[in-house]
Design a protein around this nucleic acid. Structure first.
Lengths: 206, 206
DNA sequence: CAAATTCTGTACTGCATAATCCAGAAAGAG
DNA sequence: CTCTTTCTGGATTATGCAGTACAGAATTTG
């Protein structure tokens, strides 16, 4: 009942590290195909410890998703608000984040995967768990809003072709990112993905 | 042991209709989240009948996937080889197929889903079943090849901007289509999806 | 009618796996 | 040292679901 700093044996594992490991598993294999066994092994934690910390696989998934969208969201935000770059370069930077992630994963023999895409493609998850749906919706909203602002900036600083509606362009970028995740799972090489990005961004440049 | 035309009670259900119904379930819910119960109910067929006709859920999935990629592939091919249209219009026609499908599904309160995207996002399926992987790979190859030819045509007939490499452009289109599937699952409206398509295609036109 | 085959409906089996429980060792706080 | 809490490791329970089995009705051919 003594929360926070206990007066007994402390946790030997980092909760955030567990969420990281869980997210890595979930994003590659999806929710249904990831067993608690895999999660324990990936996190280097025993079952009892897992269930002491998280009530259920569902809750762990929600927490991992929360952690995943928060960290990736922040990384994306950092690039998309980099004062040293013009709009087009920020977009390029965002896509480079994705490309680098996929290259890194490919070096380990698999695609990076994406918790958001696979969760979206398994709508029963969102239907069963309201928190999942809310997290996904808010993540999408945040991403759209950030990209939208970047588009507007790029059109003002002259790096992006004017005339394209910012919301539509933002949504197109999100579609492109999701599509890249799928192509990566289909085995497309880093070079192929990079050329897709180049072609798509060139269509937006001034 | 008497194959083909039996001399007894014939099937009262159409095997193709079952595959259609199964594909409809699988494409929305994915493999893991679709129970054999759902499949029976959707197809209007009893369990015994299902297992008399298909050896397992795995085989039914493979058959449904086969049927799905064959029918959608043919529909796409029909548009992409329509002699009455120039290249850009054929691409537009392809995207309209997707958009119409999503609009139709949205009218029923859900996204259309996609067996290919969700199967790709669950790579364990392909890992476990070689046939799944082969079907997905051949479907992607076919789609890329068809779109690539259409791009080349469009660049020759002047409807598409020259200079873009056809393979890259084709892969970008595939990414866009996958992205549309994801956005649709995220609840994007038909109008929003349509504007995404318009923007993306406008970037390719002459 | 007889034989063959599929249908319906329900009940059952088997397995994977999510989740619980427990006994003891380990490690901090007072 | 004592108390508390978390660890390890394994055993156990519970559940959902894929797949099987079966009995009887239905439907076709010969």
């Amino acid at each position: 009942m003594t929360y926070g700093d206990s007066m007994a044996r402390p946790r030997t594992f980092d909760e955030t590290a567990v969420l990281d490991a869980a997210a890595r598993e979930f994003r590659v294999h999806g929710f249904a195909e990831t067993s608690t066994e895999q999660l324990c092994e990936a996190a280097g934690v025993r079952r009892s410890s897992l269930y002491n910390t998280f009530a259920s696989k569902d809750e762990l998934f929600v927490r991992a998703l929360e952690h995943y969208v928060a960290t990736t969201g922040s990384a994306h935000e950092a690039v998309l608000t980099d004062e040293d770059l013009h709009g087009a370069a920020r977009l390029q930077g965002l896509m480079d984040l994705i490309l680098d992630e996929e290259r890194e994963a490919a070096a380990h023999g698999h695609a990076a995967g994406c918790m958001v895409v696979s969760a979206r493609m398994a709508p029963d998850l969102s239907a069963k768990n309201e928190k999942v749906k809310n997290l996904l919706d808010r993540a999408l909203e945040r991403q759209l809003s950030l990209i939208e602002q970047t588009i507007r900036l790029g059109q003002l600083d002259g790096s992006l072709k004017p005339g394209n509606a910012a919301p539509d362009t933002a949504r197109t970028m999100v579609a492109l990112i999701s599509g890249l995740r799928v192509l990566a799972q289909a085995g497309s090489t880093h070079e192929e993905l990079r050329r897709v990005v180049t072609l798509a961004l060139d269509g937006l440049r001034a």
